[in-house]
Design a binder for these strands. Structure first.
Lengths: 345, 345
DNA sequence: GTGAAAGCGCTAACAC
DNA sequence: GTGTTAGCGCTTTCAC
């Protein structure tokens, strides 16, 4: 790469030349270093603006050993939950001058580790949303990703902070709401078995059953899509349950739709709840009673944790003791899809 | 930054030392350069994997003058349309080994130009979604952003390719559908005046009126949110129109909701159409008749254009003649929200 | 307060 | 085919 024609845009040396100062001085001025004489600084600023000079981030990144960018790994950019996290992280990070690099694994979870590693190399840290990744794999991966913030994954042995949603609490609130309405036969139309948030709901339900002996809680295995919810209608109706908790809003909507096709009235004949409170949950017919997860706050909090990590000495990783972990508790949002069971109204 | 303790991870020189070769050879091997002797290449590969060596992208970026990253500027990460574009770009770019950096202007359009410039400096190119940016500003900005791909903006003087949606055609198809059903009094519940896609719809409607003299087409100024649609119900009902075209799916849903509250039946009393076919449009009650915009394809195509630009000689910018421009035509998707007007069923 | 110069980690010309 | 070396554009130490 020896002698070759300059092909690049105006660089720091052009500014230095024009202002009659050294590169170092230009650099200082561009970085707001106060040790530069005001007159000279002004001269540099003028030269820079005359030349429309803008520092090249790549050179700066290499010299500083940081990129002011964090990676966000999500399994699916089409999922409202991850969209919310992404948006929250992106906005919060932007406030602090950081940018976000996307890594969408397109649900190919075998790619997640590779993607995350790649993102980490290009960025100063990564926020990982990997609900289906095995615990073992996660623990092995985590150290190489530091600074790492986990979303909706328990921290375990990894020293990484996490921001999690108390799905167990949320589903219990939903169950309690239904029971409070008079329902005694409940059913949970489950999410994918590999989903950790599904397992959390299951645990919450176990706790609920333990403290509500008179209440029946059936569980149907199912999935996480609208279609999954739609196809669960048969099981749901056959069960005799009157209070149905769907895995999430999308499956609840599918169920609502199937029920509507069959002439079953909601909430008169059956009560249905969702989970998450995605933007469209309020617009269903009837509007969905659900457990509201402040998903954008989750993203913002993930950034807050990341910032914390970034401001720590690089080697303070392990010594920092307990990794921080923030828990968001869903709040019950009652809309029109729940009511007392038939005969109890 | 003179003598200091090495704080960095294993670099190319470690691998070179261990394999007993020069940096250049390691670099060649890591880049799949075939000119390296197979035996030596293997030796290098082993050394690299033993050391868990992964090239540092920043160094590489600086040396190669490219980052394998493109920036995507969107006005709002919460908007399904931009989410779709982002997803499409991200997936398509990933196929070619490129990553995406997000720049969300959070609807603060005065920030868009700055954000875009910043993104451009960090990336090899930018995909710009700036529906509200003034034409003049855009034209001034475009050259400094090259390689630039515009989404839903006409190309004008700027030599940048664009991928656009034929909103004018889409709304005409919707209007024709309603007229075909027997409606003679139509109304368009408009989008924000500053939205270029709204102006395109308006132009389409003008064309429609020109060729359908017996048909009335009223226009109500409005907005782009659910609430805007909801609050338009009064105007809509007062107008006497029976075929209502909402600006987009979201406003259509708002209108649907308000109509439902007032006991107006859709499609029996009034037909309503949306625009875009966002993921939830099929789940409304009744399901929305709309103009389907293949938004993810738009994103993928934006990447295709970008790739084209990137593969061109850097200075071939201007000489390339006509900038490419791809147009996607929305397709009419008839669902349950449209029917013949009262008395014509 | 300012400048010279040594890197940051890698790539690619060029020489061998 | 392989090594040497000069950058890529910037930051930062160190000496003045």
């Amino acid at each position: 790469m020896a002698k070759r024609v300059r092909t690049t845009r105006t660089g720091i040396s052009d500014v230095a030349a024009r202002a009659g100062v050294s590169l170092a001085t230009v650099s200082r001025v561009m970085n707001g270093n106060q040790t530069v004489d005001a007159q000279i600084a002004e001269r540099v600023r003028i030269a820079a603006s005359e030349l429309k000079y803008q520092p090249n981030p790549t050179g700066r990144n290499l010299a500083r050993g940081k990129t002011d960018t964090i990676g966000v790994v999500v399994p699916d950019l089409g999922n409202p939950t991850f969209q919310g996290v992404l948006r929250g992280v992106s906005r919060a990070a932007a406030q602090d001058g950081y940018r976000v690099l996307i890594a969408d694994s397109s649900e190919v979870s075998s790619e997640e580790a590779i993607l995350a590693g790649e993102a980490r190399r290009r960025c100063d840290g990564v926020v990982l949303c990997a609900p289906r990744m095995g615990a073992a794999e996660l623990e092995e991966l985590a150290p190489s990703l530091h600074p790492l913030v986990l979303v909706n994954r328990a921290t375990n042995a990894t020293g990484s902070p996490s921001v999690i949603v108390d799905y167990g609490r949320g589903i219990q609130d939903l169950a309690a709401h239904l029971v409070g309405l008079g329902h005694t036969r409940l059913a949970y139309v489950a999410g994918p078995a590999s989903s950790s948030s599904h397992r959390l709901r299951l645990a919450g339900l176990d706790a609920f059953k333990a403290s509500h002996s008179g209440i029946e809680v059936q569980v149907f295995s199912n999935g996480s899509t609208f279609e999954d919810g739609h196809s669960s209608a048969g099981d749901v109706l056959a069960s005799g349950a009157t209070g149905i908790m769907a895995f999430n809003d999308l499956t609840a909507m599918g169920l609502l739709s199937a029920l509507n096709e069959r002439g079953i009235r909601v909430p008169e004949d059956l009560s249905v709840t969702g989970f998450d409170d995605i933007p469209f949950a309020r617009y269903t017919t009837p509007p969905l009673t659900t457990a509201t997860v402040p998903i954008q706050d989750v993203g913002e909090q993930a950034w807050a944790q990341m910032k914390e990590l970034l401001n720590r000495a690089p080697n303070a990783a392990a010594e920092a003791g307990e990794p921080a972990s923030t828990t968001f508790t869903p709040t019950l949002t009652v809309r029109g899809s729940t009511a007392p069971p038939p005969g109890k109204g």
